[in-house]
Structure formats: C-alpha cells, structure tokens
Design a protein around this nucleic acid. Sequence first.
DNA 1: AAACACATCAACCGCCTGCTA
DNA 2: TTAGCAGGCGGTTGATGTGTT
Length: 266
Amino acid sequence: MFETGLLRCSKSCRLRWTNYLRPGIKRGNFTDQEEKLIIHLQALLGNRWAAIASYLPERTDNDIKNYWNTHLKKKLKKLETGADGLTTSRVSSHQSISKGQWERRLQTDINTAKQALCEALSLEKPNCLSSFKASFSGSNSSTRPSTYASSTENISRLLEGWMRKSTRPGACQANSGSTQTDSACSQGTPSATNCTMSLEPLEQLFGPDSSTPEASETSLVGEERKLVLEAQEPLSLIESWLLDESVGQGQLSLLDMALDDASELF
DNA sequence: AAACACATCAACCGCCTGCTA
DNA sequence: TTAGCAGGCGGTTGATGTGTT
C-alpha cells in the first residue's frame, strides 16, 4: 500500500484510474452496437461487468454496470411488458433463470449434445470426448474451483467463435487507441475485442419489425433465412452449433442459439 | 424562480480470491 | 498450513445535473 497524500487509499486510486483516468476510455453515449453487445453479453455472462467490459475495451465495468442499471434494464423491461410475444418469452425465459443454473444447464446440455454427436458421427477420436470433457470439467459445481473462471473462459471461447462467424466484410474495424484493462488482460481477453461485432440477432430485440416471429424471420435475407430455417430442422440448435463449431463454417449466431436453447430448456 | 422528481455516474463498501511470508 | 494483505469484483449509495410543474 502506498499513500499519495490524497485522502485515497491505493484501492480508491486504482478505481479512479480504471474507471475515469485511464487513457482510451470512451465517454458519452453508448452506441447501438455497444448497447446490443452489452445485452448479448449480459444474457450470456450475467452481471459479470468486468468480463463484459473486457469485450468493450473503451468502456469500464462501472460504466457498463451503470448503463445497464439506468438504461438497459428499463429498456428490456419495456420489451418484456410489451406485446412482443417472441421477445417477451425469449428475454423473460432466460432472465428468470438464475445465472448459475443457466450456465450449468447449458454446459450440461452442450456436454451431452457433444457426446451424442461424437457417438452419432462415430468419430474414432478418443480425444474428442476427453478433450471436451476436460474443457468443461469445471462445470461440476462440487469440484470446480471457480465458476467465474470456467464460465468466463468458456464464454470467451464461444464468443470468439461467434465473433468470427458474425463478422462480415467491412464489419470489423480497428479500435485505435484502446487500451486493455488490467482485468481484461488477466482474464484472457480474446483478441476479437478490437472487432466491432455484427449484431443482427439483436435486431430482433430492437428492430422495428421484430414484433412477431414472422416479422423477424422475414427480416432476414438469403443465407440468414436459410440458416434460420435449417435451425428449425430436427437438429437442435446446440447440435447445429456444435457441428458448426467443428466444421468451422456457418453463420448461426450464438445469441440465437443461446436464447433459443434457454427457451427450450426451460 | 422555486420546489420537487427523476436520471446519471463516480465513488464507496463488503465480499471473495490469490499471493506470500 | 495458515494468517494477513492487496487487488478485483458486483452491489449500492449519494452528490450532482436536468427536467417538470
């Protein structure tokens, strides 16, 4: 501990630096993209503002937390109470679940799905299951050392894949001047933080034509519509994603899968 | 102009975790 | 092994700004 002569301890100084003084911090209104990304990440990660902030290097966890509490909560509540059946069911269904429960169930389901997939495809790869199980070994609440660490890493991996897929030509732009936070570094922030993510899935939440499933579906064009329709085929969304992940192609968004999966599970 | 309500956001608080002696 | 410490985190508070009556 050091004293600066100010009436602040090192803790306060650090906070002041990371939340206010640190260079590269963007102030002012959040863009639509940032807003959607926050909502997306909050749905995935829960109130883990530091983890969410690691995907928005120009914003601090405090900023995001404040923005969520003051703006986005209301916005989502509005949507929830609105006449939008699809959005309402989607948002409320996954928000009503406690985060830990959601994570465990999702991870368990992923595990099960992947196992089934490996077996179904008769993959003669002993590493397939073992490596996967190892990667999710932390999902057992009685053995995992840290829910946070395991889930953050997992989600990071998922997001990496999602961002790769959702990034379209011209959609990725450099974030010049941004500085990684200490927390971002320590948490293994994916390199994709410098990408402005494509967030079409969330247009369904915020777009003017998202009030009905039909509308949201018809708002999609070409390849996206095809993929949405494909997602309604017997293959579960998780399986689609797993296949997608293993093949390294496809454009199903993680958000759709996560939310749909949550709806299916509950 | 004053009073009040509401919104915003920096800072504080307490808990948890990891490190180290 | 363990106690003490520092740092990180999320939840909450309170000061300040802004809008409304």
